[in-house]
Every structure is written in structure tokens, then in C-alpha cells.
């Protein structure tokens, strides 16, 4: 399972990279979103998969839990990546509105250089 998920995140990274290298700014935004999915999967895989119970202490005595730390990290990351996506999206939208293009090749530098 771990290997499979790692390969899945590898595929996601490949797709994300390809999108990041695109000209259209929307593709770039999507690429970052896909990157964060890959990262989340990677982090949770590092803690080991399905080797214990849900990390909630119950009344019954359960000794093995899955690693809670990656989960906490990912939870933080999910919310942050939403915020980052929103910011990038807004910037690209604003850039399109002001400059009239969403093509990164035309979006280089400013006239003040």
C-alpha cells in the first residue's frame, strides 16, 4: 500500500510539474493545488498506513494507533494550501484584469525595469 501511494503521489507531482511549467496562469494554479495533494499523501504515507487504529483514545484498551503526527501536520497544511490557492488565484485574476492576458510569456517584468 505504501509503495502504491508513493507512486500515486509521484504521478501527481509529475502532473503538477507539467502544469506549473505551462503558459496559462490557470494551469499553474491548478498545478500548485495538485502539488499539495501529492505532499499530503506523501506525509501520511511516511507515518505508515493502516497499521493501527484511529488515533482517538477510547475507553477500551487499544494499544496501536496510526501515527497521529502526520495527520496533524496535514490538517494544518490543507487549510493553508486553501489559503495559498486563493491568494494565487486572486493575483492571477487581478493580473488578467489589469493587463488583459493570462499568458505568462506576456506577463513578464514591469515597465519600471
Amino acid at each position: 500500500m505504501e509503495t502504491l501511494i508513493t507512486i500515486l503521489s509521484g504521478v501527481l507531482v509529475t502532473v503538477g510539474t507539467y502544469l506549473l511549467l505551462s503558459k496559462s496562469i490557470l494551469r499553474v494554479v491548478l498545478g500548485t493545488a495538485i502539488f499539495s495533494h501529492a505532499a499530503h499523501l506523501l506525509i501520511i504515507t511516511m507515518g505508515g498506513l493502516k497499521t493501527g487504529n484511529v488515533p482517538i483514545l477510547g475507553d477500551e484498551d487499544v494499544s496501536a494507533f496510526v501515527d497521529p503526527l502526520p495527520q496533524a501536520l496535514i490538517l494544518t497544511s490543507i487549510v493553508i494550501s486553501f489559503a495559498v490557492t486563493a491568494v494565487i488565484l486572486t493575483i492571477s485574476y487581478r493580473a488578467y484584469q489589469t493587463l488583459g492576458t493570462d499568458n505568462l510569456e506576456e506577463l513578464r517584468g514591469s515597465k519600471y525595469d
Binding site: V79, F82, A83, A86, L89, T90, Y93
Partner: peptide
């Protein structure tokens, strides 16, 4: 904070 930020983002866009 989460409610405020998420709704602010969606609304302002």
C-alpha cells in the same frame, strides 16, 4: 478565523 477568512475570500472575489 477560518470562517472569516474563507467567507471573505469567496465574497471578495
Amino acid at each position: 478565523a477560518v470562517v472569516g477568512v474563507v467567507v471573505t475570500i469567496i465574497l471578495s472575489i
